[in-house]
């Protein structure tokens, strides 16, 4: 069902907020072709008030997805290109001495936007990375002893190249935990790739797209998503999944309680995005890999080659109550 759903099949929500969400999803689908599942997950991530990490090879549309999200959701957008010489002040901003006023004035950095694209976050030094990651956790930044609140909503969409590329500083587990989801986009299929090659230029298409939602609508949607019904058996299911990650011999470090909470929040948001009457097992399975993938530490001797395979193995070994 999940995999077979097309944009046209999406029912139109009753209230206008939902309809807006559905339209936003549809519009995103016209820009990022053939990635309906990933778009749903990205939207779920934002509705669950989480930050998103997109990990894939260059040229697969990571930046495009982030830009399209900001555009369609009507959020103020800034892009920070992470390089090895990026300094924290380049992110949060700096106080500049104004001659005419005779005082320091804070010059806000790019972080003071509603949606930040942290491009190639693993290229920067840990010092610069942590400046970003702290603000993601605290929703505020401290500059020169002053604490400044970040806008609400505040999302970070970070992209990173797989760690085996040259010149990267891989994010440690504790910092990966700050991201609610880690998403992989993957190659488009033949049909979509053909349309991509022959069709209109995606960048100019993006410029024509109008903002569909607003920050206020997004805040309301977040509230509604958090209120999704989660039945008792599915709480059992989540607990069983978490227990399995802790007990499986293939996994060294299983999901923490924070990981379990992330799973609940993401599953609720996903159920909301998918118009389910409550959280279904499919919602949990859909978000499980992107939630757990970057939080688990596989055992050294495991036969599973990727986090996705490992997560699928966990899903396959826990019965759905």
């Amino acid at each position: 069902m999940q995999s077979g759903s097309t944009l046209e099949k999406l029912p139109i929500g009753k209230d206008s907020d939902r309809a807006t969400l559905d339209r936003a999803r549809k519009t995103l689908g016209t820009i990022i072709l053939g990635k309906d599942g990933q778009i749903g997950l990205a939207l779920s991530c934002l509705l669950a008030r989480g930050h998103l990490l997109i990990e894939d090879l260059p040229g697969l549309g990571k930046t495009m997805l982030a830009q399209a999200l900001a555009r369609v959701l009507g959020l103020s957008f800034r892009r920070i290109q992470f390089t090895s010489d990026l300094l924290p002040a380049d992110i949060v901003g700096v106080s500049v001495f104004r001659q005419e006023k005779g005082e320091f004035e804070f010059q806000p950095g790019p972080i003071f936007s509603q949606l930040i694209l942290a491009d190639e976050v693993n290229r920067a030094t840990p010092k610069a990375q942590s400046a970003l990651l702290e603000s993601m956790e605290e929703y505020q930044v401290s500059v020169d002893g002053n604490t400044r609140a970040l806008p609400d909503p505040f999302f970070v969409v970070a992209t990173q190249n797989p760690a085996d590329q040259i010149g990267t500083f891989p994010l440690p587990e504790s910092q990966l935990d700050r991201f609610l989801m880690r998403l992989e986009l993957g190659y488009p299929n033949e049909e979509n790739e053909r349309e991509l090659i022959t069709g209109e230029d995606r960048r100019s298409m993006l410029e024509d797209v109008e903002a569909i939602a607003t920050a206020d609508i997004l805040l309301r949607l977040q509230k509604a998503a958090a209120g999704m019904h989660m039945s008792e058996p599915l709480v059992d299911y989540i607990q069983a999944l978490v227990r399995q990650t802790r007990e499986s011999p293939d996994i060294d470090i299983g999901l923490s309680p924070r990981g379990a909470l992330a799973l609940v929040a993401a599953a609720k948001a996903h159920a909301f995005v998918e118009h389910h009457s409550g959280v279904y097992p499919d919602d949990i399975q859909a978000v499980f890999t992107v939630i757990a993938g970057h939080r688990l530490k596989p055992a050294g001797n495991t036969t599973y080659r990727s986090a996705a395979e490992l997560c699928q193995h966990v899903l396959d070994s826990v019965a759905i109550p």
């Binding site: 999940q2 826990v318 759905i320």
Partner: peptide
């Protein structure tokens, strides 16, 4: 149905 198969995937 196999272990961990959701009703939706089972239906497919």
């Amino acid at each position: 149905p196999s272990t961990g198969e959701t009703p939706a995937t089972f239906a497919v």
